[in-house]
Amino acid sequence: MSGMNALLAVILYIVLAPIIGGLISGVDRKISARMQGRYGPPILQPFYDVFKLMAKQNIVVNKHQKFYILCFLIFVIITGAIFFAGGDLLLAIFALTLASVFFIVAAYSTYSPYAYIGAEREMLQIMAYEPMVILTVVGMYMVTKSFNVIDIATYDQPLLFSLPGIFLGFLFILTIKFRKSPFDISMSHHAHQEIVRGVITEFSGKELAMIEIAHWYENVFLLGIVCLFFASNPIIAIILALLTYFLEIFIDNNNSRLKWQSTLGSAWIVALILGVGNIAFLALL
């Protein structure tokens, strides 16, 4: 991809990702509602929510929190930009981790006991999913011999066939990343039972809107990685991504929330068996 094209992709990503992310979130809520026997909100509801949050009075507990949240949003956008510009996948992953760190710092800066525990759990979550993310990137490298997204995307065979274990492992940690049951321990749309709203308990108004938008960007980026597994055929790739998301909704509605001990343990076991197993298999070939 030439520089021009890369720039265009980044601009398209910055403009379209929140729209797609918001729509996905709307459809998510609708499907979840139907699974629960309800009508559910309109598909555009997430946008209404964000616009309303934008118009709310700004209340801050700590004047630095806004800066941290802004950094969180910016680094999430950078992550996606690196990815969709065809840059280094490893760099994108690290940018995402940096974004998460800002998110955690923002939670700590509010001094709320709920946010505090939420932040602790968020860190445990990072510990839980990070090995599998790294293994995913390593697996892709081993097949395509490149860390560049552009090379991985233009690889002539679907990665899914050589990386089935890694794909399943990645699906597993997507449940954590999308904040779905059974691993929605730090914050989710319904983790309220234990720690109110977890990490984002003390955020309101514009900051909450920014967090919401950052999550839309993040979700699009994550689904982008899912697409990479079948990048040789874009249509099948998109169908695969949508199916993945549907599967996550299905899992969300099928499980109760587990404790952090189970999250950490199961994520590492999955990374070890599926991720390392798959890589070992590739190495032996």
Partner: peptide
């Protein structure tokens, strides 16, 4: 109880 451990769909179905 289902809601207490974050099992939203079970919660809704019970109430239905």
């Amino acid at each position: 109880m289902a809601d207490a451990y974050g099992f939203e769909s079970l919660f809704m179905h019970c109430w239905r």
